[in-house]
């Protein structure tokens, strides 16, 4: 258990890392940064900064949602998409693309799809007692695979010209993200709402009976956590598509580094995820420039070996 002072120090250094990652994202690109030059200023303000902030927000949203989901399901291997949210969002977004709807309606479709999948899992997966986590997980997995089937169907039916956009959306891509402010606002509100309950979450992670014994309102807390994690994920997916592995690997790595005290873990994972996705997106748009890679493919490429390493490492998982 970290002391309050150590927690503040860790968070302070992560804030420095976050600011540095944003600065790097704004500085790197085909047009070099020169604040005296009008064109350069416009590129930075209109293109790079919003995209960097969108990456920052999405990374934070996914990491926070992942950390919450891992507590909710008492499983260090849970991720924000495990309850079918990304599947639902994919169906919504791809259907909107199939019918050639404008960007704002694609985002809307993704959000509606995410919420629909959440409500479906929420409604079907809620039972009493010790089976809740397993039942939630199974319901989520089934809903996700159902969505996967619909996605496959849409991809088959889609005209050639739309396939590339759909593929990018499915992999997760920040090139199409609009204004970053709603995502940033949701991230701020979500983190501020979760922090007062951080110690309650510590106790909930110890098991339902233990939490009830210690006076934690388990049913209310679980419902709140599930709703919050779902909303955070839905906003992230709406902004950038299904970016994988950030929500799984970042909370997990953060737990290994700073321990499982949610008072430190939640903000640390948020800042870590935000910085990581900002850097990954900078890499994705500069590594093979002028070709832009979908950032989701990059996070998966980094995430998969990292995760396998953690999995096989002795004592890396409880």
């Amino acid at each position: 258990m970290p002391s309050r002072r150590r927690a503040l120090l860790v968070l302070l250094s992560l804030i420095v890392v976050s600011v540095a990652s944003l600065a790097l994202a704004v500085a790197v690109g085909s047009v070099s940064l020169d604040l005296d030059d009008a064109l350069s200023r416009q590129v930075v303000l209109a293109l790079r900064l919003p995209r960097a902030l969108a990456a920052f927000a999405c990374g934070g949203l996914l990491a926070l949602a992942g950390a919450l989901m891992q507590i909710l399901l008492r499983n260090p291997l849970a991720d924000p998409y495990v309850l079918g949210i990304s599947g639902g969002a994919s169906v919504g977004a791809l259907l909107a693309m199939l019918f050639g709807l404008p960007l704002v309606l694609i985002d809307g479709g993704a959000f509606v799809g995410a919420l629909a999948a959440t409500l479906l899992v929420f409604g079907l997966g809620h039972g009493e007692g010790a089976w809740t986590s397993t039942r939630l997980l199974l319901t989520g997995v089934i809903v996700a695979s159902g969505c996967g089937a619909v996605v496959a169907l849409v991809l088959t039916l889609a005209p050639e010209a739309q396939l590339r956009g759909m593929l990018f959306w499915l992999l997760g891509d920040l090139g199409q993200s609009g204004t970053p402010w709603p995502a940033l606002a949701v991230l701020g509100v979500g983190l501020a709402a979760a922090l007062p309950y951080a110690r309650d979450l510590n106790v909930l992670a110890r098991g339902e009976i233990t939490a009830m014994n210690l006076g934690v309102p388990v049913v209310r807390l679980r419902t709140g956590v599930q709703a919050a994690a779902s909303l955070l994920t839905a906003v992230a997916v709406t902004t950038a598509g299904s970016i994988g592995f950030v929500g799984l690997v970042v909370p997990h790595l953060t737990r290994l580094a700073v321990g499982n005290d949610q008072r430190l873990l939640l903000p640390a994972a948020t800042l870590g995820g935000a910085s990581l996705l900002t850097l990954a997106d900078t890499l994705a748009r500069s590594i093979a420039a002028p070709v832009q890679l979908p950032v989701g493919a990059l996070t998966a490429l980094i995430g998969v070996p990292l995760f396998l390493f953690l999995l096989t490492r002795r004592g890396g998982l409880a």
Binding site: M1, R74, P76, G207, T210, N213, G215, R255
Partner: peptide, 30 residues
């Protein structure tokens, strides 16, 4: 309620790593 009565559960299950001291400290929550 938690300050008044304490329940020792039949099973102690751990999903996440923690030290023995941290686990005992959880009892201070209420």
């Amino acid at each position: 309620l938690a300050q008044l009565r304490g329940l020792l559960a039949q099973h102690q299950t751990d999903a996440f790593p923690a030290t023995v001291l941290e686990t005992a400290l959880v009892g201070r929550h209420p």
